[in-house]
């Protein structure tokens, strides 16, 4: 979904700028979510081990 379609006309410099800004923003959010999930699963594991389930 994020690939540039070769059949479509090339993006203008402005569109290229918007596209790259979105890519960067999404990458930052994805990294934050991944770190959050790592911490959450770590805590879940600790709780599960602690409760013996």
């Amino acid at each position: 979904m994020s690939e540039i379609d070769k059949d479509k006309p090339p993006m203008s410099p402005e569109e290229q700028k918007v596209y790259q800004a979105r890519q960067k923003h999404r990458a930052v959010i994805m990294a934050a979510l991944l770190i959050f999930m790592v911490v959450l699963f770590y805590l879940i594991t600790i709780v599960k081990i602690g409760s013996g389930s």
Binding site: S2, K8, E15, R26
Partner: peptide, 15 residues
């Protein structure tokens, strides 16, 4: 509202 090309709509913003 953003006026974006077909290619850009394929990469939706996080918002």
């Amino acid at each position: 509202m953003t006026t974006a090309s077909h290619t850009i709509t394929g990469l939706a913003s996080a918002k």
